[in-house]
Design a protein around this nucleic acid. Structure first.
Lengths: 220, 220
DNA sequence: CATTCATAGGGACATATGTCCTTCCATCCT
DNA sequence: AGGATGGAAGGACATATGTCCCTATGAATG
């Protein structure tokens, strides 16, 4: 287990936070599967994701779940809520074991309100999120499910060409389609020889073909 | 024609900008239909929309046009590009006659870099845009075209229950569906007695029914 | 071991949506 | 007036996607 300072150093944040704020930070660990926050929970802290993978999701009024994003280090959770001073908009769950740094809003407000460096940091972070979200919207409006599935497969396998435990349920909820249809598309890809399914694992056999199918767009 | 100061006052921005920045502002007017910026144009200015209505659109690699937003006062154009120091991401066109205040990046960089008030203003603006965009994405993933059409009709008629010159082409490109399908949905609404089409105008006859159809979501 | 449960996988059918094409009408231009 | 033009409107058909259903398999549990 690294101390807080090492994590900050690792992600180039050592100079961003004054000592008083760093002192107020707490390391938090959560086991895979744990639900960290639910839609509507009070948000009194900002969280820096430094290890593991989590997912952000929401429930529609009709009870349909939508996964908005998977996040891996380095990323920030609760920044929108911090700026807007509002409760958690979405639900946050651990996909793998997690390590987060918890930063109380109170410390940020006391020590960093009017801190141009930090504001600039937040501004650039949220602007980047906006651009990503906008591209995602365009992508969804412009392309059908098979394109999005191909893109998703590619984005989740930057290193080795295999998905070990994809959870098709989550994948369908992220792409915004039904479980049934996702299976149909995967079947089509398999019949085309682009992927192979084994015991719930997925091997990518032909990245080039998938890239064509994805229209050379890759999920962020 | 109002002077710059009156516009700033009208929208509560008089205290935000120092005099040197206000002096650098220029009023710009454009006729309906004019294209202000194209995807890829250099962005050297920030624009404040103070009169009229404009639309932001993009062209996909396949040549499909997507309307990302209609904007009415008060709104900001080019804020993302200012933060990211990048060329225009999208195309901007005048729907009605427009009045904009042009603010050179140079003036902002000189006079307002490190200005906490302005950074906070930008931060809140972009955060709001992010939330809106995220909701829009969810809305598109969760609901079919008929729901989105109902929502669009309601959002465009806050005052009187009539759309005078809807431009179905634009409407389809905003909703992200085909012109044909939009017509089909409008036909269904008309047969249900919810709307009436006359010479390209659309009257809303039953807002309650439309609101139900929209699942009580209304486009921002 | 039997049972339960969650998920993978897919058949059958209904509905939503896209593509292509035709017609009609208002407006604008010469 | 006569002809262009662009958008409204919709028919016909193919495809994409959702819903409901059933079965199989492996992990967890008594």
């Amino acid at each position: 287990m690294q101390p807080i300072n090492e994590y900050l150093q690792q992600y180039g944040l050592a100079d961003l936070f004054p000592a008083a704020v760093v002192d107020s930070m707490q390391i938090e660990r959560y086991a895979a599967g744990h639900r960290l926050f639910s839609q509507g929970d009070a948000a009194d802290n900002l969280y820096l994701l430094v290890e593991g993978k989590l997912k952000i999701s929401m429930l529609s009024p009709e009870g349909k779940r939508l996964i908005l994003a998977f996040k891996t280090p380095f990323d920030i959770v609760g920044d929108i809520e911090y700026v807007q001073k509002c409760p958690f908009i979405n639900t946050v769950e651990a996909v793998t074991d997690l390590v987060l740094l918890r930063v109380p809003h109170k410390a940020l407000d006391h020590e960093m309100s009017g801190n141009a460096l930090f504001q600039q940091f937040l501004l650039e972070t949220i602007t980047r999120k906006f651009v990503t979200k906008a591209q995602e919207l365009n992508f969804n409006l412009l392309y059908a499910v098979d394109v999005r599935v191909a893109s998703y497969l590619l984005s989740m396998t930057p290193d080795k060409p295999r998905l070990d435990s994809p959870s098709l349920v989550d994948m369908a909820d992220l792409i915004g389609t039904s479980y049934r249809h996702l299976n149909r598309v995967l079947q089509k890809f398999e019949q085309s020889g682009w992927i192979q399914r084994n015991n719930g694992k997925i091997d990518l056999l032909d990245r080039g073909a998938l890239l064509d199918q994805a229209g050379h767009n890759i999920y962020e």
